[in-house]
Amino acid sequence: MLVRRTKIEPDQLITFQVNDQFITARSGESVAFAVLAAGVMPTRNNPVSGSPRAPYCLMGICFECLMTIDGVDNRQSCMTPVAEGMVVHSQYNKASLERLDDD
């Protein structure tokens, strides 16, 4: 889990949705960082056993940070920059076609 050293400057403030809450982020940072700073855990369940997982390497290697971002399942949240109004979900299940239709 992460915490911010400094407050986000107002001109860099971005708000987006993770699961049922709205969280803030600094413009330019990747989703995984904002999610970890907001204390959202787990960010996914392993599709084999359902065990809880969260970002591990933050550099695009481990693929533990996969989340549903703007309706698309299994996106690497450590490689995806935040955007105002983005909708992010922890990926608790396997990817599903129906969920794609809903969003």
Binding site: L2, R4, R5, R26, S30, F33
Partner: peptide, 9 residues
């Protein structure tokens, strides 16, 4: 995390 977005554990 520290470099890219000034976060600490």
């Amino acid at each position: 995390a520290l470099k890219t977005t000034n976060m600490v554990p």
